[in-house]
């Protein structure tokens, strides 16, 4: 009985404000509806068919995946390294450093957008002055070239959100009892061995959750990309969120049904990947590879 009482707030609140809206969007994806007028025509799977045949959808889809595949490991690993450094009692000024690494998280995205445009300015931005010193004449148009815009956005994303992952890691590292390290040191283990034999095994369950959190966060990049590149040039940094927004609100005649269909396809795809992963982990466990 306590079990359900404890679950009730989550089930109710989450059900009403997250699950129901998602299910609602499944219904919208079957309609030809602009979201503004009362004319809703049931069109069955027509939206899905159209999304499926839109090369720009698949491009955005790929960009989103690439964005995840690059930023999530980068963010998770870099922040773990920073967390280990900053978790050590021997580290001087660690509080100040933690705050510094956290500051980008709190900085307003719209302002980050203009500052980054200046920092990456192809003519006189500091990054390009450095690049030119390295011998690239004329510099690189980081945000304005379709070869680099998505990568630049990724770098800015990792910069902005590293602080939050750092906090998860710091919390996770706290679960490793300090006496374990002391015992290890007395037994003559070096820092690398300590890390491998004590920290890594204990952090494993957190790694999964932190990775999940980071994966989830990497889907929400709308503001950042919109203010820096607007998805351009020529769709080269268009991720799915921008694609969805473009159809749901940015188009001359908005198409909420179509946008929903795009979101549903992506959601299902991610879900399938998740299930496969889960099955993979289970299988590994059963054969005794895992612990």
């Amino acid at each position: 009985m306590w079990v359900w009482l404890f679950l009730a707030p989550t089930v109710v609140l989450y059900g009403v404000f997250t699950v129901y809206p998602i299910v609602g969007s499944y219904w919208y994806s079957l309609l030809d509806w602009d979201g503004f007028t009362t004319t809703k025509t049931f069109v069955g799977l027509a939206n899905y068919r159209e999304v499926w045949h839109d090369p720009l959808f698949w491009q955005a889809f790929w960009h989103t995946l690439l964005f995840m595949l690059v930023t999530v490991p980068a963010q998770v690993i870099l922040s773990l390294l920073a967390a280990i450094l900053l978790n050590s009692p021997k580290m001087p000024l660690s509080r100040v450093f933690r705050t510094a690494l956290f500051l980008p998280v709190a900085t307003t995205t719209a302002i980050v957008g203009i500052v980054m445009q200046s920092i990456f300015d192809p003519a006189n931005g500091p990054v390009n002055l450095f690049v030119q010193k390295l011998g690239f004449d004329g510099g690189i148009n980081f945000l304005g070239s379709s070869h680099t815009s998505l990568w630049t956005a990724m770098a800015v994303y990792v910069w902005k959100w590293l602080g939050i992952t750092l906090i998860y890691w710091l919390a996770a590292l706290q679960t490793v009892p300090r006496d374990l390290y002391e015992a290890g040191s007395i037994d003559g283990a070096g820092p690398v061995q300590l890390f491998r034999h004590i920290t890594v095994p204990l952090l494993k369950p957190f790694t999964i959750i932190i990775t999940l959190l980071s994966l989830e966060a990497s889907l929400h990049v709308f503001d950042l990309i919109q203010t820096m590149t607007g998805g351009g040039p020529f769709y080269s940094s268009e991720v799915l969120e921008i694609y969805i927004y473009r159809w749901a609100f940015g188009a001359t005649v908005p198409r909420l049904g179509y946008a929903s269909a795009a979101a549903v396809i992506f959601g299902l795809f991610v879900f399938v990947i998740g299930i496969l992963q889960l099955l993979g982990v289970r299988a590994a466990r059963r054969t005794g590879v895992g612990s």
Binding site: T18, I22, G35, H220, Y245, A248, V270
Partner: peptide
């Protein structure tokens, strides 16, 4: 069931679901 629902909704893009939210 609870776990599957929680995990399933974890990675769904939600920016556009504001309309049903307002509705309810």
């Amino acid at each position: 069931v609870v776990l599957v629902v929680l995990v399933a909704t974890l990675l769904v893009p939600t920016g556009y679901t504001i309309i049903p939210v307002v509705d309810i």
